[in-house]
Amino acid sequence: MQRATELALDEKTVTALRAVLRTTADEVVRAIIDEVPSYANALSGRMGGTIRRAVRTALGHYLDLASGTGGGGDASDAAYELGRGEVRDGRSMDALLSAYRVGARVAWRGLAAGAVPAGLPAAEVAKFAELTFAYIDELSAASAAGHADELAARGLAHERHLEQLARDLLAGATPEVLLVDAQRAGWSAPTTLTVVLLPSFQVRPAFRQLDPGTLVLDDLPDSTGVLLVPDTDRAHLLRQLTGRDAVVGPSRPWMRASASYARAARARALSSLIRDTEEHLPSLVLSADPEAYADLRARALAPLRALPASSARRLEETLRAWLLHHGRREEVAAALFVHPQTVRYRMQQLRDVFPDLGSPQRVLELTLAVGLPTPVE
């Protein structure tokens, strides 16, 4: 503290001030506890001893500075650590700053009571007062820096713990791992989680509209981000995501969020037009095992391969509409934009190709085979 060198106290004055140091420190502690609610009931506990030592140390360092016999580094370092400790004890910086203001007032009153009888001139007493409050300001700044740094460090650590929890959820980690992750992150587990896939640049803006317990990852491959939304109403969530390129998976028990993620990822790979996976369950079911579906189609629709490609496509389209509309010719014709007689003609062709078209097993296979509007290979 450079300004302390402007005031040189003689040995007699310093001795007189040191004589009232302990009493002044105790008065400061009592005033802080009486006037700052956050420190109520602290005098009799471990904190009271800590506060007393901190106050005595600060006042002692100040006298060393004012008498030109010491530096301010130790006191500033202690004030910095005090600020960090306030975060660990769950108190805001406002409480500590209030304590400094009270302490400055009481300390000045006590030290001045020792300095004036020691013969300190009035001009020096005024400078002494100025330096006393400047010193308190310096300690306040050091504590504020410690408080801010501890909050930042804790915020980063908390963010890392939440990200690890999200990654383990998507990876389908064991319940034991997930419980440890949640506890470490201080995250209150919900009943369900719903996974939302978004382009990474849309993740943070979308997150600000959602439940604060939502878990966030915005660094997945292919510039993809993920939101894991707790206990949400699906219709409301979809409205909140209006205007965003989102794919919303199903709600699942929170430890099974990986299932919601897997479905959303599969939907995203299937089509860029899918938004709500619940509205595309047939397509998702039929695309779950591409090889099995290709084999099913190849076997079920093999009779059509003997026909010209254009005829095969028309007949598959007609077969699909016929199955979906339960054979109601007028509805099939309307769906295909053709005359009902055209439907009758095509269905006769299909019965020629599939003699067992009326059997339940054949109907099941053909319904699955043409479930997706994919042309015959």
Rank of each mutant, 00 (worst) to 15 (best):
D89C: 08
T132V: 02
D34L: 13
L197V: 02
G243Y: 10
R351C: 04
A206P: 00
V116D: 14
Q361L: 14
L198G: 07
E138Q: 09
A42N: 03
Y100C: 09
D233F: 09
G83A: 07
A104S: 14
T192C: 06
Q361R: 15
E86F: 00
R344H: 12
S258T: 10
V102Q: 05
E86S: 04
V353T: 11
G371M: 02
V125R: 11
D34I: 03
A123E: 13
K12Q: 12
A235M: 13
G186W: 04
G60Y: 03
L198A: 10
A288H: 08
L197I: 06
A264I: 03
A262Q: 13
V343E: 04
A333C: 07
L281F: 06
T57W: 10
S76G: 13
A122Y: 10
A152W: 01
G60H: 05
L197G: 08
E330V: 06
E35D: 14
R344V: 12
F128D: 00
L364F: 15
Y39D: 07
H280S: 13
Q183T: 15
I51A: 11
R84N: 09
Q202F: 11
P290K: 13
S76M: 10
A115Q: 01
Y100R: 08
T50M: 15
L21M: 06
P282T: 06
L151A: 08
W254K: 07
D26T: 09
T50F: 15
R266M: 15
T192Y: 04
P205S: 14
T192L: 06
E316A: 09
T318C: 10
G49S: 15
E279K: 14
V247D: 03
L59S: 10
G83T: 02
H280R: 12
D94P: 04
K127W: 01
I51E: 08
E278R: 13
R346N: 11
G155V: 01
A19R: 08
P37T: 15
R208C: 11
E331F: 02
D64A: 12
V195G: 10
H147P: 02
S38M: 10
A309H: 10
V247P: 01
A267D: 10
Q202Y: 12
L170H: 01
L270D: 10
